Simulated scan of single mutants.
Amino acid sequence: MRSTGVPWTVAAVSLLLASLLVSLRYGSVSLDWATVIRSFTELSGTDEQIVRELRVPRTLIGLGVGASLAVAGALMQAVTRNPLADPGILGVNAGASLAIIVAIFVLGISAPTSYVWFGLAGAAVSATAVYALGSGGRGGMTPTKVTLAGAVLAALLSSFTSAIMLLDERSLDQFRFWMVGSIAGRDMAVAAAVAPFMVTGLVLALAMSRSVNVLVLGAEVARSLGQNVTRVRLAVAGAVVLLAGSAVAAAGPIAFMGLAVPHIVRLIVGPDYRKILLYSLLGGPVILLAADVVGRLVIRPAELQVGIATAIVGAPLFIVLARRRQLGRV
């Protein structure tokens, strides 16, 4: 049922708040609600420190990463008019990953707070390359050309990343945990480093939502309605680079989020990208944090990285959605 309004917004915000609270409570160490509440008023106590020093940063990063990847995926699907577009499939994540492994291998960068600049640079270069390759030739940019360009570039960049990892064992050990996709082990310094880029990207995305609604009708229709197509595409590309680059820098290349969340939202709110972007922003963190909590509990006291959990939880859900509805309309 495609209806939105105050009830849906209240439901989405309620789910988001619930996922934040559940993320603070549940993990390899089980805590009660009183301990969670007390952790914000008492500085002593091991359980309180677990919440304050480990789970709060992890939850905040999950909030930002989930929103960023979901909104970036929605933007890419709209601008390329490709239902399979997302930062992973179109090579943006691969570019950010290669830039970060080069920083580790060549420059000896070890602090996750420094990854963000390299992640943004790599995402920008790969996004530019995909756009250039997908727009060249007769007919300009088409969904098929962009998808092929992204797939080829992602494979090429991933092979370079693998080669560097094989050349240097130190880079392999440092990069392996990050490459799987995880929001564990990050502190508030990482959250503070990526937050400005995520917030800027999200604000830009929401500000462009009306223009995206027109652009998704096609470049010719958008031009006939007076839209500057090039400017809109550049603004959207900037938002995608900020969102995907900062998310990858913070948590690694997490699969499924940018691809499936916009489709899940579209089933509920319809084709209006003003609503798709807003509800992707709210729904992305819910799904990511839920997958993270599942990963904490399923093999407790060990943990399953959120990148693995999102694939296990999300892939079957996406298959069900694909069987119930054609994904060709964006």
Rank of each mutant, 00 (worst) to 15 (best):
V194P: 00
L304D: 04
G150D: 03
A96K: 07
L202D: 01
P83A: 03
S44P: 05
G245Y: 02
A151L: 14
L204S: 08
T147H: 03
A309Y: 06
I264G: 10
F118A: 08
L278I: 11
R266N: 09
G91A: 10
A72H: 00
T310K: 06
A311F: 11
R138A: 14
V29W: 09
G73F: 02
T230Q: 10
M179Q: 14
L321S: 10
R296H: 10
I104A: 05
R58A: 10
V10H: 07
P271I: 14
W33S: 05
Y115A: 07
W8Q: 13
A149E: 02
T310Q: 06
V330Q: 08
L317Y: 13
L215N: 01
Q305P: 15
G245C: 06
S19F: 05
A195T: 14
A123V: 12
A124C: 10
F177P: 03
L156S: 09
A244H: 06
S19Q: 03
R223W: 01
I264P: 00
L167P: 03
G270F: 06
T46I: 13
L69M: 09
G258E: 08
E42G: 09
L16G: 04
G307W: 03
T41M: 09
V146L: 09
I37G: 11
L31F: 03
V306S: 02
L16I: 08
L297T: 12
M198G: 08
D86A: 11
S158Y: 01
G5D: 08
A244L: 05
A74E: 01
M141F: 12
L166F: 07
V199E: 00
E53M: 08
S3Y: 13
L242F: 02
A237F: 13
G218E: 10
G122F: 10
L156Q: 01
V125M: 14
A127K: 06
T161A: 14
L277G: 04
A111C: 10
T142N: 10
G45W: 04
V286N: 00
L21M: 15
T35W: 00
T35G: 08
A155G: 12
S28F: 01
T46L: 14
D32P: 04
V221N: 04
R2C: 14
S97C: 11
D168G: 11
D86R: 02
D86V: 02
T80C: 13
A127C: 13
V180G: 04
A121V: 15
R210S: 15
L167E: 05
A291M: 11
L277T: 05
F118E: 09
S39Y: 01
R52N: 02
D292S: 04
G150K: 10
L204K: 07
P301T: 08
L107F: 13
L172H: 06
V241E: 05
A132V: 15
I268H: 05
S246E: 02
A151P: 04
A127T: 14
R323K: 14
M1E: 12
E169D: 11
V10W: 08
A309M: 15
G139H: 06
T41Y: 11
A124H: 05
V71T: 04
A94I: 12
T80W: 12
S44N: 13
G307K: 03
D32T: 11
L282I: 05
D187E: 12
V240F: 00
A111D: 15
S135L: 07
L281E: 00
V248W: 01
T310E: 08
A103D: 08
A111Y: 06
L278S: 09
A12T: 12
E220P: 08
V241K: 02
S171L: 04
